[in-house]
Design a protein around this nucleic acid. Sequence first.
DNA 1: CCCACTGAGTTCCATTTTGCAACCCAATGC
DNA 2: GCATTGGGTTGCAAAATGGAACTCAGTGGG
Lengths: 151, 151
Amino acid sequence: MKRVDTSEWPCTIARSAAVLGDHWNLLLIRQACLGMRRFDDFQGELGIGRNMLTIRLNGLVDEGVFRRVEYQNNPPRHEYRLTDKGRAVYPVLAAMAAWGEQWLSGPEGTPIVLHHTACDHDMRAVVVCSECAEPLNVHNVLAIAGPGQRK
Amino acid sequence: MKRVDTSEWPCTIARSAAVLGDHWNLLLIRQACLGMRRFDDFQGELGIGRNMLTIRLNGLVDEGVFRRVEYQNNPPRHEYRLTDKGRAVYPVLAAMAAWGEQWLSGPEGTPIVLHHTACDHDMRAVVVCSECAEPLNVHNVLAIAGPGQRK
DNA sequence: CCCACTGAGTTCCATTTTGCAACCCAATGC
DNA sequence: GCATTGGGTTGCAAAATGGAACTCAGTGGG
């Protein structure tokens, strides 16, 4: 009766969901994207229990999303930093933020505005095709079996 | 000791995570994006327990992601269809698929290839700025308080 | 020297969630 | 009239979750 593990399913969404389909993981990566690195900071900011936090951080380190770095050694202390793989989750968070902004904001409006420093505009994330740069939607994308397919 | 609910936090990612930070929800929406609508089809394809499935589908209907539609009434039978809000999750899934493809594929390569019918190319999703169309990354986006902020 | 504090975790325990299997019900199909 | 189909419940045991208290090593203050 272990929780179902989808990390080996022949589907990139299922595999991603094994890591990203957990609200604490998402929130931890979000905080890390904002520059947070320390155990107690994550704990205090998110209100996650310390035991949960330990389990999540270890899991994300095992996944290669975080790296555990000693930042002083007397007494030994470490912090959790995003790896390249971890930083690559940012676009997913941005897409989730865009969805949340459009569909989950109350009448007061969005609680967070994203500002793109590269072009100096407030913006929202848009998910587009790598080949033609048009926005994607359910109707214009087909999923077909790739080389790693087996099931 | 109920599971922490982040749906009212003043953060669009936390709010989205309350819905999308659950692997079954993600997988159900994925299946629905592929055209699946029936209880038994979801159950059989994903292998999710029937009780879990009931809870998840009801939850997603309450959230407004799915709509429960009667497709015959003798005996009464219904199916679950995506609403506009539900279809709007697709870009998030596409972004997750792109991350999974790059970081979670084994040596055999990706199990799934996405094909953009609009431009007739195989592609991956790219998350860009709505204003300048440049790809986003951790370093060039700032999160600042919006009108709905309070905390 | 003693005490409190900091950072980063453990441990314990009571609730919830999961997952699985078995069961229910109404209308067909054969 | 008996099994099948679609869409669920119910019951139960194994895990995950959340909260609070406790640990441990070094530091800073008095």
